[in-house]
């Protein structure tokens, strides 16, 4: 790498006064003395950057190799069969896959409106002095370790759901046509509905903080134009801010979805680790991450272990896609604002 490239960064990163246009000759170090540390420095930093890429590739490959046996044995049946029979060595992972998708969907149903509400509250409504403390408090929700959510969910929230929420859900929604079977079932507190709600609370801070940032980034001229036309705050959000930030808000939601799909401990506590397929959201189920957490150390056959790693592979691929989409959508917002990284 030449000395020119090393100096390229400072130049196009900031406008520099013209008399500083050519510092390159001054920076060439005495080649003999500085060569070794300079080479080491270049190798170490670029090597570490490559390592980050390598980690991703290695994780994907290692999961693919570990899960190969399960994919070969069961083929497509691995994802379509709901028969997870440890004793007879039959592993169909439809239940944990279904459970992961359903709990994540419930989480989004709760987290999306709540997060956007919080973002709106923090950008437009709350008194200015209270915005920072409230924002920090919401962010602390993300700092609480997931195992704490799990304990709270198991000992406090699940009993609360069983005694207060689920009987009510049963009575009101359980008898509806079409969607009734989703909400009918024994109110035991442990199940997909509870897990989905806990997940929803967990991903609120992730979506809310990104949504707040992008709402704050709406150009003042746009908002002021709307105000000048007599728009109310809700109309500004609905017709100016949200359309303007749509791709970034969707990116934020995908970021939350990526978190929800892979969340392990909280779900493991409140989902019930059941491999039975049930239409009811009140029934215990399983998720990919919870199945791995619960069963991996007990997996005594090669095929059992391979099936769990195959699940991890699927989870990793899906979260990779979801998070990539999130990144791309957030990047589109950055570009439209003229910000580049």
């Amino acid at each position: 790498m030449s000395e020119m490239t090393s100096l390229a960064a400072p130049h196009d990163a900031a406008p520099v006064p013209t008399q500083e246009a050519g510092p390159a000759p001054a920076a060439s170090p005495p080649a003999s003395r500085a060569a070794l540390p300079e080479r080491l420095y270049g190798l170490a930093t670029a090597g570490a950057a490559w390592l980050v890429l390598l980690i991703l590739i290695a994780v994907t490959l290692s999961m693919a190799l570990g899960g190969k046996l399960a994919f070969q044995t069961f083929g497509l049946g691995f994802v379509t069969s709901a028969n997870w029979d440890v004793v007879n060595g039959q592993f169909g992972a439809f239940v944990p896959i279904y459970g992961t998708l359903v709990t994540s969907a419930i989480a989004l149903v709760i987290a999306v409106p709540v997060s956007i509400g919080i973002a709106l509250f923090l950008t437009d409504i709350a008194p200015v002095w209270s915005r920072q403390p409230i924002a920090v408090a919401i962010e602390l929700l993300a700092a609480v370790p997931s195992i704490i959510y799990g304990m709270w969910g198991l000992f406090l929230f699940a009993p609360f759901m069983a005694s207060h929420v689920e009987p009510w859900v049963n009575d009101t929604l359980g008898s509806l046509p079409l969607v009734g079977p989703l909400f009918a079932g024994p109110p035991i507190g442990i199940g997909m509905l509870t897990a989905g709600i806990v997940l929803g609370i967990m991903i609120v801070p992730f979506i809310a903080s990104v949504a707040r940032d992008v709402l704050n980034a709406v150009p003042a001229a746009l908002r002021e134009s709307a105000v000048a036309l007599g728009a109310t705050r809700w109309e500004i959000l609905r017709h100016v801010s949200l359309p303007y930030t749509r791709s970034a808000i969707v990116g934020a939601i995908f970021l939350g979805l990526g978190r929800a799909l892979g969340e392990t401990m909280a779900v493991t506590f409140v989902l019930g680790n059941a491999h039975d397929l049930s239409a009811s959201l009140l029934m215990p189920s399983n998720s990919i991450a919870a199945a791995i957490a619960n069963e991996f150390t007990e997996a005594d056959t090669e095929l059992y272990r391979s099936s769990l790693i195959a699940l991890a592979f699927l989870l990793f691929i899906v979260t990779f896609i979801v998070l990539s989409l999130a990144k791309l959508m957030l990047a589109r917002m950055d570009r439209s604002l003229g910000r580049t990284h």
């Binding site: 892979g262 392990t264 957490a293 991890a312 989870l315 990793f316 979260t319 990144k327």
Partner: peptide
């Protein structure tokens, strides 16, 4: 690297644990 790093930042930690198990 920035792209991949942001994804690793939110990647499911249980999969990373399995990776170290294999490794």
């Amino acid at each position: 690297v920035r792209f991949v790093n942001d994804i690793l930042l939110s990647a499911p930690s249980i999969v990373l644990g399995l990776f170290i198990y294999e490794l």
